[in-house]
Amino acid sequence: MKRQNVIPLSTDEAPPIIVELVYQMKIKDVMTTEVVTAAKHDTLRSVQQLMRARSISGVPIVEGRRLVGIVSVDDVLTALDNGYIDDEIQDHMSRNVIVLEEDMPLSFAIQYYEKYSYGRFPVLGRNRMLSGIITSRDIIVALLIRLDREFEKLERQLGKRPLELHGTLRQQFATRRYDFEHAGRASTEIKKILKERSVDTKTVRRATVAAYELEMNQVLHSLGGTISLQLSAAAITIQADDIGPGINDVDDALQEGYSTATEWIRSLGFGAGMGLPNARRVADEFRIHSSSQGTHAMATIYLQEGHGEGIGTGSAS
């Protein structure tokens, strides 16, 4: 049977802007909160009438706000075929309901449509109570609205982009919040590019430290962002731009040992409060600006002799 509800969107390999969106958007931003429900002592016929009246294809069964089962249009058709449409719901409902949670990223819902052949997923909120329901239509509509906005933004930015300088290389990488799977990829690529262009080892190390710390800072503390490399004959510039929520006190964040990281981040060996200080230390020039709209940091390392002497990485012997 052809799977009808699969959303043909890869949550890893789609263009970065889409991947970012499906990780940024939460299930609760997309789900329908007015859920049509029934109780387990109602009859299947009452569910059939509900489905017809409200043009829906699945009805969660609840006790209070607690989800106890679900009845789909298939269940109703089977009941009609087999003549038990006047039975109570509890005798025929599916009890093993696959659910989503409202704080999960939207990517989970998309992946669920690939894994399970259901048309809809009930969504649980705090205390595991039913808080909404999500269909593939909800997802597609929400994505279209967001994409429309993103495209408008992109078009505005394209108009403003300065011309590329002759001989300057630019490369940009996206980061995502808590995406430890891909954390370090931007810095690894940047290191490779610099090595390929025969930048000396010490300078590569300094640029790598700056790139890595700025990248991890985004993965650990921002909602996502980009790391950009700009390489000219005179300097390497690593620029980090994220979309928020911003650093409360930049001066605090630049002090060694200051950290807002949670316990589990620390248990992975991150969040020791050395990130931004490290990035600043290895750079010849370091600028950072932060607001609730996002944090923008720039680390510049000079390539020409006479600049930046005496600034080591600590490993320099």
Partner: peptide, 11 residues
């Protein structure tokens, strides 16, 4: 501490 390693571990 990975930041410590990043900053200070020798090649």
């Amino acid at each position: 501490l990975l930041s410590d390693v990043m900053a200070n571990a020798p090649e």
